[in-house]
Design a protein around this nucleic acid. Structure first.
Lengths: 199, 199
DNA sequence: ATCAACCGTTCCGTTTACGGAACGATCGGA
DNA sequence: TCCGATCGTTCCGTAAACGGAACGGTTGAT
């Protein structure tokens, strides 16, 4: 590793960042996979991206710590979004796993002044269901179903949504999620928190 | 610029990649915005991310070309996905810079085997419209409208979608986005890039 | 008015990612 | 069986990103 100084922790202010494993950096294997998928050689890709073979070799084998510029050049030569090289990598600090039946991943938090939005991608395995306790007053949930058939919303007033459909409800009561029929449900979930706690 | 050698073009094989404007690298402003959103100082963020103030200053002002490691450390300290720092950056090889009318933010990339998905949140100001050039063959776009009324899709076969509605189309032709009526359109946009399209 | 604390930038020596040029290995065609 | 072409890795000098320390500017308490 590189700049992992031992940090005697002068810590004037903050309690220092969480350890957060370097993680997220299987960029090398990803690039190599994308390249081989296209059936082109390391030399050829280096040529197309206008980077040195040494650079690309070091990137793929993980023995170097590439610059943004290098990553951009390689992504362009592979004709993929730059972000594809960093892929599932995301591994956010906040990554929240909520319960077992529902596979839910926090995509992004928007802090729009007096309101906070949390955007999730949610997958409910076929036939499974899960309940969730009430949130604070004013919180609402907004679900867009992409695949499967979902029963969701307050436990005493459930809502149904199929592919392409959108439902929303006030989430200050206990609510649930259930996948109906034989297919998994894939959906986007947006939770709106009025007047949230900072951070 | 940095490694923009004049390229006498030995060109054994490929015709070399398109120029591809460095683009995509408004990383600095984005980091600064995220930091100020949280109300923390440059010094404080540098401390939390365990990077030098000089490094962070150079990153935010765009006078340095950060390494992946630096970007990861900063993203972690900001508690956002690494991809969020590269955000609208998505300006891919597809050359799809989406211009001024549509305010579009990359939320997340899913790399599911042979396909890449990009999830965006999109806002089209009331009354405005914008067109976008064709993407690669096989690329499709999927829009879920949350608010407002959107006219979108291929220029010669436009689609309409109101709140909660979902539309999709093949994006390998020129297409557009327009907000109808008096309200802004807020929508989720999912772009699907099928993988292998080697030369 | 003074001063300590902090801000963001700039300077500087060290570390390291960079491209080019080697290297041995592998593969086809003469 | 050569042998030229290309493969991916390694070596090397250069360019630049790095962290630390200084800088001047601003703020708030004494």
């Amino acid at each position: 590793m590189h700049h992992n100084r031992v940090e005697p922790q002068p810590t004037t202010t903050g309690p220092a960042p969480p350890a957060l494993a370097a993680g997220s950096a299987d960029v090398g294997p990803r690039v190599r996979a994308l390249r081989e998928e296209r059936g082109i050689s390391l030399s050829e890709l280096a040529r197309r991206a206008s980077v040195g073979k040494a650079t690309l070799s070091g990137l793929e084998t993980g023995t170097r710590n590439p610059t943004l510029e290098t990553l951009q050049a390689v992504a362009a030569a592979l004709a993929v979004p730059l972000t594809a090289l960093l892929g599932g990598a995301a591994a956010v600090a906040t990554g929240a796993l909520r319960g077992t039946a529902v596979d839910i991943a926090l995509l992004r938090v928007f802090d729009d002044g007096p309101v906070t939005y949390e955007l999730y991608r949610m997958r409910v395995p076929a036939g499974l269901s899960q309940t969730s306790p009430a949130h604070h007053a004013g919180v609402s949930e907004h679900v867009t179903v992409f695949a499967g058939h979902l029963r969701t919303g307050p436990l005493d007033h459930p809502l149904l949504a199929g592919p392409g459909e959108y439902v929303e409800w006030r989430a200050d009561v206990p609510h649930g999620y259930a996948a109906l029929g034989g297919t998994d449900v894939l959906a986007g979930l947006l939770i709106r928190y009025p007047r949230p706690a900072p951070r």
